[in-house]
Design a protein around this nucleic acid. Structure first.
Lengths: 222, 222
DNA sequence: CGGAATCCTCTTCGATACTG
DNA sequence: CAGTATCGAAGAGGATTCCG
């Protein structure tokens, strides 16, 4: 079938791009960085991809050993796609590239642009992952609109996962507008709580400390 | 002209891919990581690109502020393309991605595959850049077949540049086969010198120490 | 109903030829 | 030397249909 288009260069970068360089591939992997996902959820979170192209990309990424198709343990028993270890190895690359691109992003979403709190959270996770997190260890759940995700801070890795954690030090509930306002520093968590826009269950102090590091990057001067 | 195809997602990664995600773009930037290049040289080092596509990419990358078109100072006075600071900011991303892809590369170039010592050198530079280089500071020139490049090791940055350095601690001359054999550890520099396959001018000891760190990455087990 | 394969149109790519 | 013009081939996007 696929003629396997290739740059035909004996070079690591060219080889990486042979595998990852086609349209949508890295965005599929971005979604999987948040955890295993179902086909339909991937399609929903990648508006515009078209179901045929999603299937094609998933197949070629699976062939390349970057992701695998598997089945969630009972009682879920649903088929999902998840990163392999090789795919997980792309996390630093995708985080760096996201941070680089964040600087090119307009301050406000303009026009018909899809927005997800979890995309911002991934960028925030990249920031947190590059700072000292001692004393912040724990799990922090977020409900933002209809999105559910959580942040885990361990020894020296910070990760954002989609879904609901088994347990958490704190659970924050808010709406997207408030979430983004806090994330880029326009609103303090303290003020948001006072106004009833941010509701926190659990360890408020620790969540407050988390939010000091879990935010969008400073933007370069225009 | 170009409808500026975009993923239309308010996400750093998606934005980065809007700018860099099209075919050939990152390979053009790879070439520019080695220094300013002329249009014709880019075309020659990217076999298969097609001159129209090269022109289109250069234009859009210039518009994105990743590279600029400029003129080399007299007496050269030739037009070249070079990275902007924003483009230079992609170096860590490209190095990480190249290291990731290097692992997928077959041990031997198979079939009709272009090979350049400078591509390997870039990967080797990425390795060197991630190790401690104290005591290795200096400039080291290489002539490999018809390729000329040099490695600079400063405080804690190692870089590979195309061309001839103003001055160097040592100058190594060899053929591609010997260079690759040394680079991936199949041949010791010492042995290559004894066999007359590697000729070194200047500080042999320091060059020998450089080559201890300037090599291709260890390959993951198959 | 979720997970794809098919079909059709439009855009992009690749190769060569051509021009200032 | 540094690009632009052109054109057939391949890829992407969208809707619909098929399969379990």
């Amino acid at each position: 079938m696929s003629t396997q288009r290739s740059y035909r260069q004996h070079c690591g970068l060219a080889r990486a791009l042979d595998v990852l360089g086609e349209r949508w591939s890295l965005l599929i992997l971005r979604e999987l960085l948040l955890g295993p996902r179902r086909y339909g959820d991937l399609a929903a979170d990648l508006p515009g991809i078209g179901t045929n192209l999603l299937a094609t990309r998933l197949r070629s990424l699976e062939e390349a050993g970057v992701l695998r198709r598997t089945t969630l343990p009972a009682p879920a028993n649903v088929p999902v796609y998840e990163l392999t270890e090789r795919g997980e190895g792309l996390r630093p690359v995708l985080e760096e590239l996201a941070l680089w691109g964040y600087d090119l992003l307009p301050a406000e979403p303009a026009g018909e642009v899809a927005t997800r709190a979890s995309w911002a959270a991934m960028t925030m996770g990249a920031v947190l992952d590059r700072t000292d997190t001692t004393g912040l260890e724990g799990t922090f759940a977020f409900s933002v609109g209809d999105e559910l995700f959580y942040v885990t801070v361990a020894d020296d890795a910070a990760r954002v996962h989609q879904g609901v954690p088994p347990a958490a030090e704190a659970h924050a509930t808010t709406d997207p507008a408030t979430f983004f306002a806090i994330a880029d520093g326009r609103l303090s968590p303290r003020q948001a709580m006072r106004d009833g826009l941010l509701v926190v269950d659990g360890d408020r102090r620790l969540l407050g400390r988390l939010l000091a590091g879990f935010h969008l990057p400073a933007r370069a001067a225009a």
